[in-house]
Amino acid sequence: MRKLLLPLAIILLLLSSCSKDEEKRTLHLYNWTYYMPESIVTAFEEEYGCDVVIDYFSSNEEMFAKLQAGGGKGYDIIFPSADYTSIMIKLDMLSLIDHEKIPNLRYIPSIVKDKATYDPEMEYSVPYFMGAAGIAVNKTLAPENYERSWMIFSDERMKGRMTLLDDMREVLGDALKTLGYSNNTSNEEELEEAARIVREEWKPNIVKFDAESFAKSFARGEFAVVHCYPENIVSELSEEQMANVDFFLPETGGSMYIDNMVILKDSEEKDLAHAFINFVHEPKNYAVFLDEFSFPPTTNTEAEKFMTTTPLFTSEDLENYEVLIDVDEDLEKYNRLWEPIRYTN
């Protein structure tokens, strides 16, 4: 035991000494992997003379599990999607947003607030980005007259060269929207109808449900049509390759997401956190983020003036899109229909 005590004591000493020396203020972020250009963070650090420490997650579930296990202590700002934002509001985990401290909220257009049904007044959350998964077609591989809708996945001419996202809510949601239903429905008949489309019309033509490695194969010309988020392919394809790609959001509508910035209730740097959110939505800074991913200025209209790239889709494309929100117990209904689609031949 004694042998153990010494190293323990040293570790404790080290730990306590680092917190003592810390006079510089530090902001702790918990964000998606590769979702904020580093230059924005560095610029903020310089302007406010503080440190910004960022941890990363790759799914909402991962982030939420960590918070629930008590690993979220010390974080100031987190970037959850709409469904988890609503859960965190329900569970009283968030701090109220002081609109006085974030004047740049004025650049967030009303369409975003309308779609954010879980928090339309931005009481607890500030939208970071509103976007959607769409379809990318490699024009050199696809036949000329392909359909620019979700029903492209019924096209047998490209059988075995198409992928859908390995994401139950996205895929079933898009089928629901194609049928004219809400993608947050709890109506079992509507769900069954949507599942039938996925099972009988789309699934036979796709090679796999993939959310991990499809972009690399799409870049290599292995897949002709992929269901994807724009950033998936932008990060994987060169500019010349992108010239041959038709990325579109089907007009019939589909599933959309809003990623938010929220301040945790236990945050000790609430002022700095508000300053950071304001800084991100400064149009000049926000444009850097949009340019990085070829995103349109859906969530900050003013930023358009500072953009140097042409986005892959426009804010208008999102008109018929509905934000996926948490469906609580009804998730089981989705699971039951998804399991045979996903796990069996």
């Binding site: 579930e61 991962e62 994401d167 090679v207 796999k208 998730l331 699971n335 996903r342 796990y343 069996t344």
Partner: peptide, 25 residues
Amino acid sequence: PLLVGGMGSTMVGNIIVDQVQKTRN
């Protein structure tokens, strides 16, 4: 199985991850 598998090659390991990360079970 996740990366080189196709439609009918999901294994138990994949279900375990799905249950934790997607269906919250």
